[in-house]
Every structure is written in C-alpha cells, then in structure tokens.
Design a protein around this nucleic acid. Structure first.
Length: 425
RNA sequence: GGAGAGGUGUCCGAGUGGCUUAAGGAGCACGCUUGGAAAGCGUGUGGCCUCCCAAAAGGGGGCUCGGGGGUUCGAAUCCCCCCCUCUCCGCCA
C-alpha cells in the first residue's frame, strides 16, 4: 500500500506506475474520494467537539446542583447532523480503503524500463552448461527411468500438478531442505522459522496477495483460511501490527514450507513434469530492514540465493526485472534462472524482491529508535530456492550416458553420502 | 463439538453511566541526590486520523480500554453481533 500523502504529492507518477504494471486503478477518483473524506471528517469532528464540550458542561452543572436543561436544547440537531455525516463517511471509507489496496507499488528508479519478460535485463551469468556427449533427457524421463518419481500415482492422489517422490527422490527432497536451511542459518546469518502453511485473510492482505490474487489460492472457505502460495506470507506477517525496537533490525528469517498455487488461468501450460505444479517445496528468506539499507540488503539477499546454486555447481543467470514485469508489491526484483538442458530452457528458481514499505504499510510493521516516531520497515524476500525446478536442473545437468544422475558434492552429506542415483537393477 | 472464565496503556492491575482528560504499581527516559552506583525524591511516558504552520518544531481537534454496531446530552462501564485466548469435558494425530 502506498501512503495517501505520497499519492497526493505524486498522482501522475502513481498513475503511470500502475499503468506500467497493467493495474486498473483510477488515481483521480481515489484522490477525489480522499478529498471528500477529509472534508466530511473535519465537519464531523467539529460537531463532535461541540457535543463533547456540552456533555462536559452538563456533568459539571449536575455536580454543582444546577439545572442543565438549557444545554440540552440544541444537542438534538447536532447529534442528527453528526449521524448524517457519519453515515456518509461510513460509505466512503471502505471504498477508499479498497481502492488503496488495489494500487500497485511504484517500481524503483533503478528497475529497468520495459513491459514484458522479454524486456528483462540479463545482469550476469554463472557457470556453463554441461557438456553432454549424448542427447539429454527431460527430467520426467530421467525421474521415471530411475524410479524416483511416480507421476501417474500422484495424479491418482490429487490430480495433475502434484508430485510423488519415492526412494532416492524423496531423500533428495529432504536433503535439499536441510542443505539450504543449514547454509542460510550457519553461513548467511538467518534465523530459522517453521511457520503455519494455512493463514488468515489479514496475512494475505498484508503481503499483497489479496485482494488481487484470491482466485489463485486454495481456500478453506469454512474457516476463511488460505493455503500459502509462499512462505513469504506467514513469515513476513510474523511481525504484523508490531513496532519493533530499532536495535533489532535487520531481522532475517529463513524457513522451509510447502507452497500451494492453483495456477488459475495457466491450464495447459507446462503440464508435463515438474516445471509448473500446484504444490511444491521452497526455502524462503525474509528480511525486515531499515529503509536506508534495503537496496544493499537486496543485493546480499540475491547473493545468498546465488550461493545455493553455486554450491550445487549449476549454470544460472540473473535477470533484473523490467518495470512492467514486476509483481504487484515489488519495487525491484531479481530473478535467478537455472539452465535445464533436458527441456532446453531457463527456469526461474528464485525471485529476490525489495518491497520497500509497501508490505509494511499494509501489514503495519514498524520500528522505532529511542526517542523517535515509529517508521515503517522495508521488507524483502527471496526464494533460497524453490525445489521443483532445482530438482529439474540437478537431474538434467547431472545426468549421465547410462541414465544415472550424479549427486552434486555439496549435497552428498545431506543424502547419506549417496554419490549418484542409479536405476534399480 | 459442549460448558465455563476472560480480553484495560510497554507490563501487572483497579475500575458497574459524568469529580477517569484510565487509579495504583512496575518498567523506561530525564533531573535532583551521590566520590560512583543503588535506594530515595521529582518530572515525563503510547498509537492512529485530521487541521493550522512553507517545512521542522510546536499547537488545536477527533478516535483509541479485543473488533463492529446500538442506547444516552455523556459509555472501559448498559444492550446486540463477531473475533481471540485460557480452563474443563468430548473427539483425535
């Protein structure tokens, strides 16, 4: 959420930014409503002030044993006027709030111009694609041939877009979780959290999934609870409606969670294999930082995510998202994409975003230095990293001519020393 | 799911219609005191909205005792709805 102050001072910039993100918002209408609200507020508060003074007078007179009835006379009209104005306000305020919640964040000046994913800027590359002297297989064939995933039975359980890992595949998932969490906690300084994966509406609104993305989430309608699409939601909301001690910042959390996405509107896209699924696993990093440090913190967040890929020896590139491709809440974002030779394409495994104070304002996350007024923190988060596409990359990059898959060295301690996954004989 | 208890400021805690612009205590900050500290004494102590002010500082007003409505000239206090927490019972990993 943007502050009304900011929108008032730079309406054109806000309207233009919304257009870049293809958000259908009418800033002029919003400001007109804001103006109306403030006018009404002034009127109603003046009347309330009168009424308060009169009530006080009545109390005093009664205590002094005097007759207060002359004060009563005019109060009826005042009360009626207040009631009328309040009703108008009550109609306007939710409307204004609803509009405010649909205004996207303004891209940072440092985010490159552009409208579509094609306009994203490749900022760097690391490593090189593997040299394979055979025709690389796609991960779904590798996994099926090795017996580490069972796509058919997963469909039987839950439908398309769900995964069933078995044997070494399952072990791989578990190992990845520990590998990434250990890296972020012991080397990158994050505090580990284990969070709920079902959250309430306030959480979803706080981080910006609601109201826009409701149809993309699994919802337990009986309880009005949502399955999280990312750990960003519960972890960022840990400090919702809090004023943090300025000395505590930055606060850095990392946590593993499963993630659930309905992917409404993308049916028929990437239906095969693990590229796009309804439930997947992810280790996430979330930071609460002082505003003046957030862009430095974004760089280190991206480096922390890159380290995961580097340790696993996987070829990747870093994209800087153009203004038009930024998500609703983000001001700046880096995507990390892994090279997958089997499906012959780049696959996004991490988004590292700075939301500045956009989420903090929605979620009421502030900090205070001694003797100062509270300020909103800046929030950031990044995948560190998402599992399915990482697994795709491991399988496809480390596949051997004989159909086996070599386990990256850094991962071996986490999978019981296993050096390769080989087909059952 | 059933029954009960409760939600007050940073914390504890009082408070059943106007001497409460929330008592008292603790904590915190500042000052006095001290060789220094503790104790003691004094002063102060939140958040949101809005207006005045070029801005900052400052000041005015409104709201804020879980949330939302209502009664009343006046509500922490009375009424209604909702949420949350705790205890016991039931069920259950």
């Amino acid at each position: 959420m943007l502050s009304l102050d900011f929108i008032r001072s730079r309406p054109d910039a806000v309207q233009a930014a919304a257009a870049e993100k293809r958000a259908d918002v009418d800033i002029d209408a919003l400001l007109a409503l804001d103006e109306e609200r403030r006018t009404l507020l002034q009127q109603v508060e003046a009347l309330r002030s009168e009424l308060n003074a009169a009530s006080k007078q009545i109390g005093e007179k009664k205590r002094a044993g005097e007759d207060p009835s002359n004060v009563f006379q005019k109060l009826g009209a005042t009360k009626a006027a207040i009631k009328e104005l309040e009703e108008k306000l009550r109609a306007i305020e939710p409307q204004l709030q609803a509009m405010l919640l649909t205004v996207p964040n303004v891209p940072s000046d440092t985010s490159p111009p552009g409208k579509t994913p094609e306009d994203n800027v490749v900022r760097s590359q690391w490593g090189a694609p593997p040299t394979l002297d055979f025709e690389p297989k796609a991960h779904w064939d590798i996994a099926s041939d090795l017996g580490i995933m069972d796509f058919e039975r997963a469909t039987k359980l839950s439908g398309a877009g769900f995964s069933l890992f078995t044997g070494a595949g399952s072990r791989l998932v578990r190992g990845l979780m520990n590998f990434m969490l250990d890296l972020h906690t012991t080397e990158h300084g994050y505090t580990e959290v284990w969070a709920p994966v079902v959250v309430n509406r306030d959480c979803m609104t706080g981080t910006g999934q609601l109201p826009k993305m409701e149809e993309d989430m699994y919802c337990c309608t009986e309880d009005d609870l949502f399955l999280i699409p990312t750990a960003e939601v519960p972890v960022t909301n840990i400090h919702r409606d809090e004023i943090l001690d300025g000395d505590r910042l930055p606060i850095c959390y990392t946590g593993y969670t499963p993630c659930f996405r309905r992917e409404a509107g993308s049916y028929g896209k990437d239906t095969k294999g693990l590229i796009r699924v309804h439930q997947f696993d992810k280790v996430e990093m979330v930071k609460f930082v002082r505003p003046e440090t957030s862009y430095d913190e974004l760089e280190s967040l991206r480096e922390n995510a890159e380290t995961v890929l580097q340790r696993l020896g996987l070829h990747y590139r870093v994209l800087e998202l153009c203004r038009g491709d930024l998500s609703f809440a983000a001001a700046k974002c880096y995507d990390l994409e892994l090279w997958a030779p089997g499906v012959n394409r780049w696959l996004e495994v991490s988004s590292c975003s700075n939301f500045e104070d956009f989420q903090a304002r929605r979620a009421g996350i502030r900090f205070r230095d001694k003797g100062s007024k509270p300020q909103f923190v800046h929030t950031l988060n990044g995948s560190g990293v998402a599992f399915p596409r990482l697994i795709i990359a491991i399988l496809e990059n480390y596949q051997q001519a004989d159909g086996s898959v070599v386990i990256p060295e850094a991962l071996r301690p986490y999978v019981g020393g296993m050096e390769a996954i080989t087909a059952p004989s």
